[in-house]
Design a protein around this nucleic acid. Structure first.
Lengths: 226, 226
DNA sequence: CGTATTTTCGTACATTGTACGATACTCTTT
DNA sequence: AAAGAGTATCGTACAATGTACGAAAATACG
């Protein structure tokens, strides 16, 4: 049966690096990072495994590209306008991107080779800080601080067994029972009196920390400019 | 030649979960996380691969145990004494632990099941904050903030292609040349005027951020207590 | 001793990344 | 249209990995 161009709705749009990387992201989003294998990705794209290697040198390099693509989803801050607004916007945007792709945080660690989107991203933030009046040194400090916080929060959130407001209780209840023995009293306290309360949202923790950092940086700005 | 109890200095101390986990850490420290395979670990321990499975259910559970062991290396803060001193001590200690085991940061992401050392650790920090006078809610905020910062910094540091003061220049110089084209002007500026300066140490960035956060939390404490 | 339990291991298999070379396809030049 | 050159796809095969399964060896205990 050598006919094949009939109605098989298998879309065989031609491959490309772009399509490979986007397919990888989609697969990781859908089935998790562990399910992202060259074989399954090829199948998803309607191709055979070895075909991918025409667009990526190897899996590691592909993951580098994937990370850079995720970075490109993050809104860049502008150097004009209020720096606090701009920095906050990109922080929220980064958090959202890493929420959409929770596996990405893990990836960013192992990859040491930043791609163009990553570099552009870093450059934009530094530009915003410099335009706001921070000295070179202070901009570096602020940048390291903000970045550590954003990625650290993403790490925390990815490790949480729940996501979104009010979904906590379902998962947490049995866990709380486990150490009701009184071995971790303060964890208990936080859990029952804060996290398990209806309406709890991890996003609030994020906003609190971000505000605190921005306020403190704003307070340090005048002295730095002098 | 069926003799074997002679002088072969292969130490065949009996296996144990402890020995397996510590061996795993040692191997990851030495050869990197990718080199940590059940086979190589078994060899390191003078055993055969399948023997390990009497002490760990599978590799994933082993990694959970490894992460918990790394956590146990971090100094716990005390609830007595100045909270800022205590929190700082544990932050520095955590950074050091994650510097000793740079691969651990990546692991912490994927594992969702915290071990006893991890729980004890979290509990101790919350205890210190509560003793300092923070409200439940504020303690949760402060804790999330501090933790995100510490792990985020570890993530950054692990991604850096250098480590320790003054080792930057060697690696960074050629990179800087690469985008000397002027595409990333602010990165250039930071690089040449700050990071590449002799005496640069990433640890200084860490301390700056930690101080800023602690100061801001201290400032928020009185209002929170009221 | 023997017997029961624990600890160690040998073999085997499925899954992964990917090296290597062959095939199919596309485009230019005649 | 034919031929040739390049490009994109793929088939086959191999080494490395986690680990299921059950056998063997070591140990503990009556």
């Amino acid at each position: 049966m050598p006919q094949e161009t009939i109605g098989t709705s298998e879309e065989r749009s031609p491959l490309s690096k772009e399509r490979v990387l986007r397919g990888a992201i989609a697969l990781a989003d859908e089935k998790g990072l562990a399910a992202l294998t060259m074989r399954s990705l090829a199948q998803e794209l309607g191709a055979k495994p070895m075909s991918l290697y025409h667009y990526v040198a190897n899996k590691d390099e592909m993951l580098d590209g994937v990370v850079d693509l995720v970075f490109s989803e993050i809104e860049l801050p502008s150097s004009a306008g209020d720096w606090r607004v701009e920095i906050r916007r990109r922080a929220d945007s980064a958090r959202q991107a890493l929420q959409r792709h929770p596996w990405a945080t893990a990836l960013m660690e192992s990859r040491t080779a930043p791609g163009p989107a990553t570099l552009r991203h870093h450059d934009a933030i530094l530009g915003t800080l410099r335009s706001a009046g921070f000295s070179v040194k202070m901009a570096a400090h602020a940048y390291a601080l903000l970045d550590a916080y954003v990625y650290g929060s993403a790490l925390q959130e990815a490790a949480l067994p729940f996501s979104g407001p009010d979904t906590v209780a379902i998962v947490a209840e049995p866990i709380v029972q486990l150490f009701a023995e009184g071995e971790y009293p303060h964890l208990m306290e936080i859990a029952t009196e804060h996290v398990l309360k209806p309406g709890y949202d991890f996003g609030d923790e994020f906003e609190f920390g971000l505000n605190l950092i921005l306020d403190a940086l704003a307070a340090a700005l005048p002295a730095d400019q002098a």
